[in-house]
Write a protein that binds this DNA or RNA. Structure first.
Lengths: 127, 127
DNA sequence: ATAATTGCAAACACTTTGCACATGT
DNA sequence: ACATGTGCAAAGTGTTTGCAATTAT
């Protein structure tokens, strides 16, 4: 596990938080991590920031009010969110989006650094 | 202005809130509306719900923690968000996304009801 | 008249901060 | 030893709720 120089120590709390995010298939919220670990919520929030800053994990926004996190060494992908059971599935799509970004940068003189794309609907169980 | 049967009365507060959203080019937050109007925040939040439920306005999520609102009788579009000045610009793109949705529905057996797409980066002024 | 709407204060969910104590190297 | 990390309580946002008073039809 590579930790940038911004984060040297491999403490118990940090290790456990990374493990949880690693073993969770879909983006996980601070609240869920707090529920799963005997670690103070302040520490969890602080580590989520630190790990995001260090580039090890990514913040994911899914249109509810809480941030979620996933490992960042994944290939670029988007999310499928069930409006009933809240389950989140990763999805890879042949991405026209990067070429669209080029076009937008030109047309709008806007320097794009990232995009978010989420699909909302109902999973097989819930429809 | 057409109000669905769920919302009959055209009260002062409701009228002012609709006017503000109409005249604001990009999605506006509850906080901004509260700042602009002599209307209690509870009323603002309640009207934003009611108007959303009535289908007159749409909730927009832009990866910060607050909801924003725009008139819903706009053609489908996405958003360009400046990470420095927070300015939001609407953007229309020839949408491959609906055809992608079809494919996802088939592959994943997931019934899609909507999607969100936002681009983040720096506007001309801020880059 | 009466159902819908409003304002106020209090509660809520999620996240952040200040500070003293504990831990990793 | 000393910088870094931790826990606890308290504060900070953004949003929602209960309830009594007000307003639109």
């Amino acid at each position: 596990m590579l930790l940038s120089k911004a984060m040297i120590r491999l403490t118990q709390a940090r290790k456990k938080i990374i493990e949880i995010i690693l073993k969770t298939a879909s983006p996980i919220s601070a609240e869920e991590i707090i529920r799963l670990l005997p670690v103070n919520k302040t520490t969890v929030y602080r580590q989520l920031h630190a790990l995001t800053y260090a580039g090890l994990i990514n913040e994911v926004d899914l249109a509810d009010r809480k941030k979620r996190y996933e490992m960042s060494d994944l290939t670029h992908h988007h999310h499928l969110v069930c409006l009933k059971c809240q389950k989140v599935e990763d999805i890879n799509l042949d991405d026209h989006l990067f070429s669209q970004e080029k076009k937008i940068e030109k047309d709008k003189q806007f320097k794009i650094s990232k995009h978010n794309l989420e699909f909302f609907g109902y999973c097989l169980n819930c429809q």
